[in-house]
Simulated scan of single mutants.
Amino acid sequence: MKKILPDKLEELLLVFFLGMMTIVLGMQIVSRYIVGNSLSWSEELVRYLFIWSAFIGVPYCIKLGSSLKVLKFIEFLPMRLQKTILFIDRIILFLFFMLMLYFSIMVVRESFVSGQTSPALGVPIWLVYLSVVVGSFLSVCRVVEKIIESANNVDSKADSF
């Protein structure tokens, strides 16, 4: 099956964000305890990297099929009904992330127009809000991949997502 997104996209982004958070926090610790001078911008940058990693983590979980849901009830149903419920679940997720994408684009647009910047870094706030747009877009792509995957595996056992 042809994938919409590169297979390791979320993993690479998550490793990058975690690595950057580790480096910045390490710099903050060294600066505070060895140099005796605290960095004014490190907490803010780590907070923004954490926000980005949270929104990139959502499509990663969708890709792995590890989203939160109650599957024990579904396992007792006939296979055809299981597949139908999982398909409806995917459609609902698709619609939810499309709404998130639409409204997050509106928030980024308003934030861009306002010109608001962060206090310590002076970074435009729309870059932080852009994490919701990117996460929602990647989530839509991963849900579409799952829908296509389940449509191609008509005869197989119902999967966990």
Rank of each mutant, 00 (worst) to 15 (best):
C61I: 02
I34S: 03
M20D: 02
S114L: 06
V143N: 07
S118Q: 11
I92S: 04
V46D: 02
Y33D: 03
N37M: 05
V140C: 09
F17A: 05
F96E: 03
G135D: 09
I51G: 05
E75Y: 13
L99Y: 05
I125D: 00
P119M: 02
G36C: 05
V24E: 01
K63D: 01
F94R: 02
G36D: 04
R90H: 13
F16E: 02
S42F: 12
I29P: 11
V144I: 05
S53C: 12
R47W: 07
T84D: 00
G26R: 06
F76L: 13
L45Y: 11
D155L: 10
W126Y: 14
S156W: 10
S136I: 05
L9Q: 14
L12G: 15
F87W: 12
L45R: 07
V46M: 02
F96R: 01
S136T: 03
D89I: 03
W52R: 01
I85H: 01
S40P: 10
L45E: 00
V24L: 11
L95N: 12
F17D: 00
Y48K: 08
S38Y: 00
E75S: 12
V58G: 00
S111E: 11
S38A: 09
S156M: 08
L12E: 03
G57H: 01
L14G: 10
L68A: 14
K2R: 15
S111C: 13
